[in-house]
Simulated scan of single mutants.
Amino acid sequence: MSTQALTLGPAGTYSHRAARAVADDEEITFTESVTTIIESVADGEYGRGVVPVENSIEGSVTESLDALADHDVAVVREVITPIRHALIAQGEEFSTVASHAQALAQCRSYLEEQYPEVELEAVASTARGVQRAHDDPAVAAIGHPANAEEDDSLVVLAEDIQDRSSNATRFLVVAPETERTEAGSKTSFIVYPNVDYPGLLLELLEPFADRDINLTRVESRPSGERLGDYVFHIDIAAGLYEQRTKDALAVIEEIAADGWVRRLGSYDSETVV
């Protein structure tokens, strides 16, 4: 099995910055598909994968959630990356701003106020936008200010242009399922009840409330089996090693007896700037 970490690329993305928390640059490989990252870890091709799952402004990354439901991997770490968007270009005259669609959305108010006439171009990543700005003086990019520091042809025209200063993205570090652990302050799991009746969601949540376990995220995604059928992604502020968590999950497994419950694992969280 490779010891390398696989994440979204190219180099210079926020995913790259998150991946640096778990691997050195020479050990990081890039792809442009979240599904490929999780598949490659599940298949044993890579020892670690780093995938975005949630942004504080734009919400969940649904491709990540769906891939986690489709492949058996372990979550071994959480990395929070504050998003610091800068406007980067060769000069002050440009007609297009290129970046990832989420970055454009996260800077919507700034762009509408300061550059209402420019064309917005969605590209595969913030780093792709920076490359566009490097290649074309008529294009500006939105990305981390460090991207300009690493390119002599680019300058930072404005920093911290995101609409909300609290903007941050949550990444999960995935590993082969054999590395799943019960140790950690947070736990992620997925529930597919394969049933539908009034009060089902309440029944899924009550076992945690009854045991004073805080739910940090609950999200439903279509199962793909039939219309109105859902898979539930649940994060809690407790470890699998805790008896209260074991007791709550025992109740959940009874409710989902016709479906399945996948424990992604327990882990700790860190923030990287």
Rank of each mutant, 00 (worst) to 15 (best):
D43N: 15
Y110W: 14
P176A: 09
W260P: 01
A148L: 14
N55C: 11
T169H: 00
R211M: 04
E92D: 13
L249D: 09
R132Q: 10
T81E: 12
V34Y: 06
G228I: 02
E242S: 12
T178Q: 11
D151I: 07
I190T: 14
F208V: 11
V155A: 11
S2A: 12
E225P: 01
I190K: 02
E54Q: 10
V218Y: 01
I80T: 08
S95Q: 05
S2I: 10
I83E: 02
P10M: 05
P82I: 07
G224M: 11
S15L: 01
E58K: 05
G12R: 08
E112V: 07
L157N: 06
H85C: 06
T81K: 14
A248C: 04
V34M: 12
A67N: 12
A183L: 14
N147I: 03
L200K: 05
S2G: 07
T3V: 13
V231P: 00
S165E: 15
I213P: 12
T29P: 02
E225L: 09
A133N: 03
E177K: 14
E113C: 03
D235S: 04
D135I: 01
V76S: 15
R170W: 14
L154D: 08
F208S: 11
S40K: 00
Y115C: 00
G259E: 01
A133S: 09
V75F: 09
A148Q: 11
S223T: 08
Q162K: 10
H85V: 02
S269W: 01
V34W: 00
S165G: 10
T3R: 14
L215F: 03
E121M: 15
I80V: 15
L201P: 01
K246I: 01
R180N: 05
R20A: 07
S188W: 15
D66A: 11
A69V: 00
S269Q: 04
G143I: 08
P207V: 09
R108Y: 05
V73I: 12
H71W: 11
R217F: 08
V218N: 00
I37P: 08
G265A: 09
D25A: 15
L201I: 15
E117L: 04
R128L: 02
T181P: 03
Y46M: 15
